[in-house]
Design a protein around this nucleic acid. Structure first.
Lengths: 148, 148
DNA sequence: AGTACATATATGTAGGATGCATATACAATG
DNA sequence: CATTGTATATGCATCCTACATATATGTACT
């Protein structure tokens, strides 16, 4: 043993060290899977099952296969990837995906917006670790904040 | 003019410089609003309408009021904030919110998970700007990647 | 031949988050 | 008394995603 299949891994889901109180309380972006897939496909053509393993190296401990495959079909519908069946290799047929020009554009666009978003997070952390916001009163009329 | 009310601002929504091709393609976090509210309330008690202005300084250009108020009620149901009506000031009654102990715990928990997530983004950027992943073949049997 | 397992893709369903539209009400101002 | 700003709230539709489940093929082993 020690070699573990994807089928095994996806059955486990850590609940974290805080108990079930905070299940689902994670900072995750929406639609994260799409850019991750595109980034993989930018350099190598690949298929669903393999992409699952790739994404695991990202921070997705165990992606849901259903979510992944559905996302891939959706991405193809949107024209940011395209696929062909590959039957030459042994085992079940694979749907090989490759990125399109639109996909590359999408990826670039997303990366740009990610920079913006990182600034938001920096702001958040500065406020979280540091003092409260420093531009407070600004208006005596509405000075109704209760200091705690 | 020049002084603009929240009611005005929320009617505008920039579509960005890329046309409508990429509308909605942004790196946005899930559930971002909750920690932002909690962070605000950690230092100052406040109410919905004011929190809208606060959040605007974050990167939320114009939060949806509906979303905000609904989120606040939901947060109260979960016990991470609590509220009382304030009628002493002029104008319509305000529902003043304050953070609870559970809310502080939630915030801390979220901030921790945010660190983790930032690492994911760093990984993403390193891969995006740099070379493809460097630990590729690892298994000759499955060497079916097509270099592009 | 038969059984178990890894590989591979896919759908049905349900719940949660969120955007947009809309409704309501109070107070100040002219 | 009409308009604007302040303030809170609900209904509806849509998107995202987790979970469960279905199906099929190839390989290894007995």
């Amino acid at each position: 043993m020690e070699e573990r299949s994807m089928n095994d891994e996806r059955r486990e889901r850590g609940s974290g060290p805080w108990g079930k109180e905070f299940r689902g309380v994670e900072a995750r972006p929406r639609n994260w899977l799409v850019p991750v897939i595109l980034l993989s496909l930018r350099d190598w053509n690949s298929y669903g099952y393999e992409l699952m393993e790739r994404a695991a190296k990202f921070g997705f401990e165990a992606i849901n296969p259903g979510t992944l495959y559905r996302t891939l079909r959706q991405m193809e519908k949107e024209g940011i990837v395209k696929s062909t069946w590959e039957t030459s290799k042994g085992g079940p047929a694979r749907r090989m995906y490759s990125i399109t020009d639109a996909g590359r554009a999408y990826l670039d666009f997303w990366a740009k917006s990610l920079e913006q978003y990182q600034q938001m997070m920096d702001t958040f952390f500065r406020m979280y670790t540091g003092r409260p916001m420093r531009d407070e009163p600004e208006d005596e009329e509405r000075g109704n904040k209760e200091r705690r």
